[in-house]
């Protein structure tokens, strides 16, 4: 791993209908944001198994962003509520194992909120950068 300039590795798991569309809109509008995030698309944040996130942290992710529709706007009625509940519990577990819970973020970005997506990514990148490399990195490999 190159030591010169550390860049965080952040995984974004985002829903097809709202946040992925919002991220696409940010692209069409050429809204610039930092490139330190990689996206895995799912149909709904309800699909996000907390184990996916744990797997990412074990694999050495410095941060994970889960982003879905606003409450009441879920394409599948209530998947985002269930995802939010899981993330809430998972955050408390992260604290218990000594990982800063700020490394996991759940946000709600609609298909029309391209500008918000850019702000969210920048904020997540800034937060994770300030926290530094994940302490789990050395165990994972």
């Amino acid at each position: 791993m190159a030591e010169k300039e550390w860049k965080p590795q952040i995984l974004g798991i985002i829903c097809n209908w709202c946040s992925y569309a919002g991220a696409d809109l940010a692209g069409s509008a050429r809204t610039q944001y930092p490139p330190d995030i990689r996206i895995v698309r799912v149909m709904c944040t309800g699909r996000v198994d907390p184990l996916f996130i744990m797997k990412a942290f074990i694999d050495g992710a410095d941060g994970v962003l889960v982003s879905g529709c606003h409450f009441g706007d879920c394409h599948y009625l209530e998947g985002n509520y269930k995802a939010a509940k899981r993330m809430f519990i998972l955050k408390s577990l992260l604290k218990n194992i000594g990982l800063e819970d700020k490394r996991l973020r759940m946000t709600f970005v609609s298909a029309s909120e391209g500008a918000k997506w850019a702000v969210v990514v920048k904020d997540v990148v800034d937060t994770v950068t300030s926290l530094g490399p994940s302490p789990l990195k050395e165990f994972g490999h």
């Binding site: 895995v40 309800g46 699909r47 209530e78 269930k82 899981r86």
Partner: peptide
Amino acid sequence: GCGTCGGFCPGGAIWMQHFATPQIVAQID
């Protein structure tokens, strides 16, 4: 096909077609 069930199943017994756990885990890895 939202996958809310697949995101919860404690035994990993739900196979979400096209968004199956091994496929998503492979992406993360």
